[in-house]
Design a binder for these strands. Structure first.
Length: 231
DNA sequence: GCCACCGGTGGC
DNA sequence: GCCACCGGTGGC
């Protein structure tokens, strides 16, 4: 299970982070082309159900790709946090400043040289997010169709369509996305609890609250153990 | 002129 | 009803 938080506005490339905390950075960007507006990635331990921050987008993508056959455990995080155990408090404090979403598991890592870009849209729109792939050439592709025709025109040895997925996560917050008019539209449908199917929660954060990571936060809201879709 | 963002819709 | 796909456009 994974989560991320969103940061609006500035380009953030979690992938450039080498430490524990992905810092907003535009270091290796020459243009103002935007990257993800996601600034942190988190995965849930399959054993203790606590959340652990993942230091880079690449690592997150690697974990996500294999999570079905290779469940994430706290000890996996020792790669970047040598002391971490299941005894440590969860990395996440659900204090309302974070918005959550459910990421899909088993999404392939982008081919080498490619970037998978997720842009969370503003609340109240008709769609939750956009997903793009940036080709090594810099070309931005918006759909499988575009990937396909790009591959037709450019030789990308060893790259296949199966390495692409345009699946976007789901917002946990009901009504983040404006519901389309339906004939039976009642305003308060309480039934809409998001029940992810073996999926991966993600979170993003509203603007201007970008850097307050809660590693081992004190006010642990007990376990964020379960699929955070209560009520 | 470009592109990030958003909405609409055809096809399932 | 959903979502993959793509067109439009405002802001830069």
């Amino acid at each position: 299970m994974q989560l991320f938080k969103e940061m609006e506005g500035s380009a953030l490339n979690a992938a450039t982070g080498t430490g524990n905390i992905p810092c907003p950075s535009s270091s290796n960007k020459k243009s103002k082309r935007v990257s993800d507006n996601v600034s942190a990635y988190t995965v849930q331990c399959a054993k203790c159900s606590k959340w652990r921050f993942i230091p880079t987008k690449e690592k997150y993508e690697e974990i996500r790709e294999k999570i079905a056959e290779l469940p994430f455990l706290c000890e996996t995080a020792r790669e970047w946090r040598p002391d971490i155990t299941c005894e440590e408090e969860t990395d996440l404090v659900r204090d309302g400043s974070w918005n959550w979403a459910i990421d899909k598991p088993c999404i392939p890592q982008p081919p080498p040289g490619w970037q998978r870009i997720l842009r969370i849209r503003a609340r109240g729109g008709t769609k939750f997010a956009d997903l793009y792939y940036d080709a090594p050439s810099g070309k931005r592709l918006r759909s499988m169709q575009e990937v396909q025709s790009y591959m037709h025109e450019h030789s990308e040895p060893g790259v296949t369509l199966s390495q692409f997925s345009f699946q976007i996560p789901e917002p946990l917050e009901e009504n983040y996305v404006r519901k389309r008019r339906t004939s039976s539209a009642t305003l308060n449908d309480m039934s809409g609890a998001v029940v992810p199917v073996a999926a991966t929660p993600i979170s993003w954060i509203p603007p201007d609250q970008s850097r307050d990571f809660h590693f081992g936060g004190e006010r642990n809201s007990t376990s964020d153990a379960e699929a955070p879709a209560e009520s």
